[in-house]
Nucleic acid binder design. Structure first.
Length: 852
DNA sequence: CTCTCCCT
């Protein structure tokens, strides 16, 4: 059979010629160009490939399978012959395979296992614009391999829309672009009315009007993009209630589509509309790249998506609703142009500028897997398109140390290597590998449950007791489908989770001595009373072990120092200890979504190194006195506390803690000391080469031990600190050269033409100010400057009565333009002061006119 | 009013 022609075919000769000359290439081609299925076979006959294989990376399993099947069919073969694929738990390759389509985690494993990539001649990164974490890592590792071990290895980045210039610069490669194959899509921006801009209450009405317009102006189905399930439900209710859809309303089916739906429900959404009917599909991002809907001719786009943001300070990930990128908006609009010319209704003002591309995952997700891979690679010095943020990386390494996957030096130990190669996220891998053999089957089920979406529906889905999901899985495993349903579970979801759990067990059996006896417990409801689930999960979430607050039974103290609380309908109320699997981050106490109780006796047994017996001192705000305790703590959780007598050496740490709690303003500051801080901070900004110390509030509080502590020795009360001591403590941080530079470049005062010295006012975030009577500056054309002439003073020119007349950094133009006006205005009010017609030649003075 | 999409 002759392959159908694709737009990219015209480009293939140039692509082959370029790859003969260059080892790297960036190929930009929109959807429908045919890059995924046409480029790999075209490379097979190239001399540089020799007999070696081509790897192609796909970001989704479905896409990997489909691409391999399509290419195999084009050759009249079956998958696993010349063309094969490998995804997690599934491999269809043979010795004859020359094109191997893999998903992202597989590629990382392949490179880590054999950095020389023996037998591989080229790696193609498809859909690179999606910027998944593993895609970025895979590309960075491949570049490292090519630079150091395999200069002949060909690397090709393929993407739809990308910042081509920036990618080509990073990849240091020529760039080719192909036409796509899609129909034109007309763009419209139907305006919102007052109160209809998201997240105001009225946004569903804006959407409803746009849907009605789309139905009226287009044939076929309408696809609407919304950020999440909640918004889908709100939109559905608004559309169902409205009569704007008029005559067509009766012939329209409303369909919802999101990742939490069962397979059957997703299939219903993907099936074409029945004869004579039209569909309005309300969808999340699943419909942007993963699922293709037949029959869509119009798109309505709210322009929003939910994205995870990892906060290194709290250690939690939260889900934010954000404006989509321009690339994403274009991709969504393109969904209307697959069958014929289409229309897209964008529910944001046409004037709004979108970010060109979405933030890459590496910049905003939790990085423990990346950190583990880097430890295995043995080097952080990779060529990144976007480097991992240092804060998130440090936090990831802390977690890996808590899991036992990295040693104190940040190196990968034996356990860490096993965590890495198991192929689950590090938290879950650690829990499985720590499980005693009889508990391994249950541990594998927990991994499968946590990796999957919640299999429970309805009210059960809201339960925060993680054991309910385990119980439903066990009911299903024991063929008690009715029991599983009674727990609110969706059987198809449980079937998939059960299969995944079995796959983990098989993988684990290959690595550790097998225990064939199935000792699965907890099929019985008694399991819900037990701590078996929590006892395993504590090794996955050692930072989220939580103890009930003695004063507030709904509140918990987490080991990582944060607070959390149970929801109002919690099934876990009254549990003294919980391991928190999932929570929603909030500034004060995060909300617990899923947790399980564990046996607190395990703390001492399993985590002895995290217990600390410590003497702690505190400054009591009410009694204004120093208090001392002896505490036994598990990380941030206080297990025991008893008051002990305060000793003289307790005073200093307590005073420092008090200053940190109450802020720097509890110290007595002289005007001179305040001014010194502002001068130093200003000059630090103008002359970084002086390396002046940081005098900001944050830095001074952080460094109290260095600068203030020596002056607190022997003191037991805060009010014993003298203002002069604070000043001296501050200025002693400057050495002789720095003090000289400060006096020369950021002086306290400056001489003005009247012969007097006038003070300069420094500020934290504003230019320095010189307030002076304008008569004192007669004859002066240039604005006075400090910091070796680099910084002009902002002049506050005053009337003889000290009232501000003008603020300027341009004295010359004041005399020329503004002074005549000012003179006219003020001469009558201050007749005793000089108001010469020519300020350039008048004598500067701060006094009134001499008496005759 | 409890949460987008993926992947080893």
């Amino acid at each position: 059979m002759t392959p159908p022609a694709f737009p990219i075919d015209a480009l293939l000769p140039r692509l082959l010629a370029t790859l003969r000359e260059h080892a790297r290439l960036v190929l930009e081609a929109p959807p429908g160009a045919g890059k995924t299925t046409r480029v790999p076979p075209a490379l097979l006959g190239e001399d540089w490939l020799g007999g070696r294989r081509i790897l192609m990376l796909e970001p989704r399993r479905i896409a990997a399978r489909a691409a391999a099947e399509f290419m195999a069919a084009q050759r009249g073969e079956r998958v696993g012959e010349t063309v094969g694929y490998r995804i997690r738990f599934e491999s269809r390759v043979s010795a004859a395979t020359r094109i191997e389509v893999v998903t992202e985690g597989i590629l990382t494993r392949l490179i880590q296992d054999d950095p020389e990539l023996a037998g591989i001649g080229a790696i193609l990164f498809d859909e690179f614009h999606e910027r998944h974490l593993h895609g970025d890592l895979g590309a960075a590792l491949a570049l490292d391999v090519q630079a150091n071990l395999r200069p002949d290895l060909r690397l090709v980045v393929m993407s739809a829309t990308l910042d081509g210039e920036r990618v080509a610069r990073w990849f240091d490669a020529p760039q080719l672009a192909s036409e796509g194959r899609s129909f034109p899509v007309r763009l419209a921006h139907p305006p919102a009315r007052a109160g209809e801009a998201f997240p105001e209450r009225g946004w569903p009405f804006h959407l409803r009007r746009a849907v009605a317009q789309a139905l009226a102006e287009s044939e076929g189905d309408v696809l609407a993009f919304l950020p999440g399930r909640r918004e889908i439900e709100q939109a559905r209710a608004a559309i169902a209630a409205g009569d704007d859809l008029g005559a067509v309303h009766a012939a329209v089916d409303l369909v919802t589509l999101h990742g939490e739906l069962s397979l059957a429900e997703q299939h219903a959404a993907l099936a074409p509309a029945s004869a004579g009917r039209r569909r309005v599909v309300l969808a999340t991002n699943v419909a942007e790249s993963s699922l293709t809907l037949p029959g869509v001719r119009a798109v309505v786009d709210l322009g929003l998506a939910r994205e995870p943001r990892f906060d290194p300070n709290s250690g939690f990930t939260r889900l934010d609703t954000v404006a989509v990128s321009q690339a994403s908006a274009d991709q969504r609009a393109g969904r209307a142009g697959r069958l014929g010319p289409g229309a897209c209704y964008r529910l944001w003002p046409q004037s709004r500028r979108l970010e060109p591309a979405r933030t890459p995952e590496i910049a905003q997700v939790e990085l423990s897997q990346l950190a583990l891979e880097l430890a295995a690679w043995g080097s952080d010095a990779l060529r990144w398109l976007d480097a991992p943020p240092p804060g998130a990386l440090a936090q990831a390494r802390d977690l890996l140390r808590a899991l036992g996957a990295l040693d104190d030096d940040g190196r990968l130990g034996d356990f860490g290597r096993r965590v890495l190669t198991l192929g689950a996220q590090p938290r879950l891998a650690a829990a499985v590998l720590r499980a005693e053999p009889p508990m391994q089957p249950l541990a594998c089920e927990l991994v499968a449950l946590i990796e999957a979406r919640n299999p429970l529906r309805g009210e059960s889905m809201r339960s925060d007791d993680f054991r309910l999901r385990v119980q439903a899985l066990h009911a299903w495993r024991e063929r008690d489908t009715a029991g599983a349903r009674a727990l609110g579970a969706e059987p198809a979801a449980l079937a998939a989770i059960g299969q995944a759990a079995d796959a983990w067990r098989r993988r684990l059996a290959g690595r550790t001595p097998a225990t064939d006896r199935d000792t699965r417990r907890g099929g019985d409801p008694a399991h819900r009373e037990s701590t078996a689930v929590g006892d395993l999960l504590m090794h996955a979430f050692p930072d989220r072990l939580a103890r009930q607050d003695a004063n507030d039974p709904r509140r918990y103290q987490l080991a990582n120092g944060r607070g959390a609380r149970l929801g109002d309908a919690s099934a876990l109320y009254g549990e003294p200890w919980l391991v928190v699997v999932d929570l929603r981050h909030e500034a004060r106490d995060s909300l617990i979504y899923a947790a399980a109780p564990f046996d607190p006796q395990r703390l001492a047994r399993d985590f002895p190194q995290r217990h600390r017996r410590e003497r702690r001192v505190r400054w009591n705000r009410d009694t204004r006195a120093v208090e001392a305790f002896e505490e036994l703590r598990f990380d941030a959780i206080v297990l025991e506390r008893r008051v002990v007598p305060a000793a003289p050496e307790d005073a200093l740490p307590a005073l420092l803690a008090a200053i940190r709690e109450l802020g720097l303003d509890v110290l007595p500051w002289t005007e001179h000391a305040r001014e010194l801080r502002l001068r130093v901070q200003s000059l630090r900004g103008w002359s970084p080469e002086l390396e002046l110390p940081d005098f900001s509030d944050a830095a001074l509080l952080r460094d109290l031990e260095h600068w203030l502590a020596p002056y607190l020795n022997g003191k037991r009360r805060l009010d014993a600190v003298q203002a002069a001591e604070v000043s001296e403590a501050l200025s002693s941080r400057l050495d002789y050269e720095q003090r000289r530079a400060l006096d020369a470049q950021a002086p306290v005062a400056i001489g003005v033409p009247s012969g007097l010295e006038r003070r300069i006012a420094y500020a934290a975030d504003a230019p320095p100010v010189l307030a002076v009577k304008l008569q004192e500056l007669f004859g002066l054309a240039d604005t006075p400057r400090i910091a070796d002439g680099r910084v002009p003073l902002t002049l506050h020119l005053l009337s003889p009565g000290g009232k501000p007349v003008q603020v300027t950094q341009d004295l010359r133009s004041f005399w020329e333009r503004t002074y005549p006006e000012v003179k006219k205005e003020l001469k009558g009010r201050y007749p005793k002061h000089p108001w010469p017609d020519d300020p350039w030649t008048a004598t500067p003075t701060h006094r009134a006119k001499p008496r005759r």
